[in-house]
Amino acid sequence: MIKIQNVYKTYIDGDTEVRALRGVSLDIAAGEFMSIAGPSGSGKTTLLNLIGCIDELDAGEIRIQEHAVSLLNKSQLTELRRSSIGYIFQSFNLIPVLSAYENVAIALSLLNLSRDEVHRRTMTILQEVGLEGMEHRRPAKLSGGQQQRVAVARALVKDPLIVLADEPTANLDSETGEAILQLMKRINETHGTTFIFSTHDPMVMHYADRLCQLHDGKVERDERVEAAVGGA
Results as ranks from 00 to 15, higher is better:
Met1Ile: 14
Lys3Thr: 13
Ile4Pro: 04
Gln5Leu: 13
Gln5Gly: 07
Asn6Val: 15
Val7Ile: 08
Lys9Pro: 05
Thr10Ser: 03
Thr10Glu: 08
Tyr11Gly: 12
Asp13Tyr: 02
Gly14His: 01
Gly14Thr: 00
Asp15Pro: 05
Glu17Ala: 05
Val18His: 11
Ala20Trp: 05
Leu21Glu: 01
Val24Gly: 10
Leu26Met: 15
Leu26Lys: 01
Leu26Gly: 02
Asp27Asn: 11
Asp27Val: 08
Gly31Ser: 04
Phe33Val: 00
Phe33Ser: 02
Ala37Ile: 06
Gly38Phe: 02
Pro39Phe: 00
Gly41Ala: 01
Gly43Arg: 07
Lys44Cys: 13
Thr46Gly: 14
Thr46Ser: 15
Leu47Ala: 06
Leu48Gly: 12
Asn49Trp: 01
Asn49Gly: 02
Gly52Ile: 04
Gly52Glu: 07
Cys53Thr: 11
Glu56Ile: 03
Glu56Asp: 12
Ala59Gly: 03
Gln65Met: 15
Ala68Leu: 15
Ala68Thr: 15
Ala68Trp: 13
Asn73Thr: 10
Ser75Ile: 04
Glu79Pro: 04
Arg81Leu: 15
Arg81Asn: 09
Ser83Ala: 14
Ser84Thr: 12
Gln90Asn: 01
Phe92His: 03
Leu94Cys: 01
Ile95Phe: 14
Val97Cys: 06
Ser99Asp: 01
Tyr101Glu: 12
Glu102Ile: 13
Ala107Lys: 12
Leu108Arg: 07
Leu108Lys: 01
Ser109Gly: 09
Leu111Gln: 04
Asn112Glu: 05
Ser114Pro: 13
Ser114Lys: 05
Arg115Val: 13
Glu117Phe: 03
Val118Cys: 12
Val118Glu: 03
His119Gln: 09
Arg121Ala: 06
Arg121Phe: 01
Arg121Leu: 00
Met123Glu: 07
Thr124Arg: 09
Ile125Trp: 09
Leu126Asp: 08
Gly130Trp: 09
Leu131Trp: 09
Met134Leu: 14
Pro139Tyr: 07
Leu142Met: 13
Leu142Ser: 00
Leu142His: 05
Ser143Pro: 05
Gly145Glu: 04
Gln146Met: 07
Arg149Gln: 10
Val150Gln: 06
Val152Gln: 11
Val152Trp: 04
Ala153Asp: 08
Lys158Gly: 01
Asp159Trp: 00
Ala165Met: 10
Ala165Lys: 02
Asp166Ser: 05
Glu167Asp: 02
Leu172Trp: 02
Glu175Gly: 00
Gly177Leu: 11
Ile180Val: 11
Gln182Met: 12
Leu183Pro: 11
Leu183Arg: 03
Met184Tyr: 03
Arg186Phe: 06
Ile187Pro: 14
Glu189Gly: 02
Glu189Ser: 10
His191Ala: 06
Gly192Glu: 03
Gly192Val: 11
Pro202Met: 01
Met203Cys: 10
Met205Thr: 12
His206Gly: 09
His206Asp: 14
His206Asn: 10
Arg210Asp: 12
Arg210Asn: 11
Leu211Glu: 12
Gln213Cys: 01
Asp216Ala: 08
Lys218Pro: 06
Glu220Trp: 06
Glu220Cys: 13
Asp222Pro: 15
Arg224Gln: 15
Glu226Lys: 14
Glu226Asp: 10
Val229Asn: 12
Val229Leu: 10
